[in-house]
Design a protein around this nucleic acid. Structure first.
Length: 162
DNA sequence: CGTATTTGACCAGCGC
DNA sequence: GCGCTGGTCAAATACG
């Protein structure tokens, strides 16, 4: 994969500049807070152009997780008791030309899929660090190719490269 | 040589 | 019961 020979690495603060517009979520992992000062900063102040159809997606774990709930043999677990899963889903909408924005973690692409709702493929990334159940899903906006929807799932068990 | 990336196939869940 | 979509893994390949 060879993209622009520049602004790919050592983008530094310039990279965060693209985070001008993004979405919010219900809960944010404490670790992320520490790793992303730029994000917490924007969080405090609403974006002037936030009027966009920012479709923030905060998925609740105890909601329609039937895809996993039905998997249980009906033995133990969830009889009205919901517990915190390790899968927190946080979706961001970032204005970026590239989807390979380096957020301080090493991601290894493990799959690409074509979604019906989008003419663009969806990329699946996973943290290269062992013990990191964190997964990332990157997808281009259906009508705004200059926007990318980045969905983070899980929390890192290690410190970021920063 | 090692790691990261690629594409395809397979599987699972849900809907109809 | 069949079909569809989404998601993940695996093997092969490319590149550093």
């Amino acid at each position: 994969m060879d993209h622009s020979p520049e602004n790919d690495d050592n983008v530094d603060d310039s990279n965060f500049d693209q985070f001008s517009e993004f979405l919010m979520f219900d809960e944010w992992p404490d670790e992320f807070h520490h790793d992303h000062p730029a994000i917490s900063q924007s969080q405090s102040q609403s974006q002037p152009t936030l009027n966009n159809p920012v479709t923030y997606a905060t998925d609740e774990i105890g909601g329609s997780s039937s895809h996993l709930g039905g998997h249980n043999t009906g033995e133990n677990v969830q009889s009205g008791q919901e517990r915190r899963e390790v899968r927190e889903r946080v979706a961001f909408k970032i204005k970026s030309e590239i989807e390979i924005l380096d957020d301080g973690f090493k991601w290894r692409k493990y799959g690409k899929k074509m979604v019906k709702n989008s003419p663009n493929p969806r990329n699946y990334y996973r943290c290269s660090v062992d013990g990191c159940p964190v997964k990332k899903r990157v997808e281009r906006d259906r009508e705004d190719p200059m926007y990318v929807i980045t969905t983070y799932e899980g929390v890192h068990n290690h410190q970021s490269s920063f």
